[in-house]
Amino acid sequence: MAKWDISRIDEWKGDEFPLGACIPESGNSREYVTGGWRSQRPVRDSEKCTQCLICWIMCPDSAIVVVDEKVTDFKLDHCKGCGVCANECPADAITMVPEGCELPEVK
């Protein structure tokens, strides 16, 4: 899938936009940071984690990183800190901790 370069979109004129407000690249919201909404972040205790993957299937923001059937990380660019993962974790392996001042840079 070709990357759609929108770096100069604020300068485009009518006909420079793709026809009819079409977005010609799929899933490019991956570049949009919603992590800045967060007031608390999930922290996973890998000792307690049973790799049941409930957090992954219940995440509204597709923000649980799974590699080879195992949870490895959170996508903090997208995680809004809702805490569903922590609430649903059957092993109580996820804790929500205050975000403090270390917010990711919002693009």
Binding site: A2, I9, K13, G20, C22, I23
Partner: peptide, 21 residues
């Protein structure tokens, strides 16, 4: 080439430019 049709172009988006086109 998956594309998105019918996107939302409010919140300061280029709606005016689309009408111009």
């Amino acid at each position: 080439q998956p594309v998105t049709h019918g996107a939302f172009s409010g919140l300061g988006g280029p709606f005016f430019e689309f009408k111009r086109a």
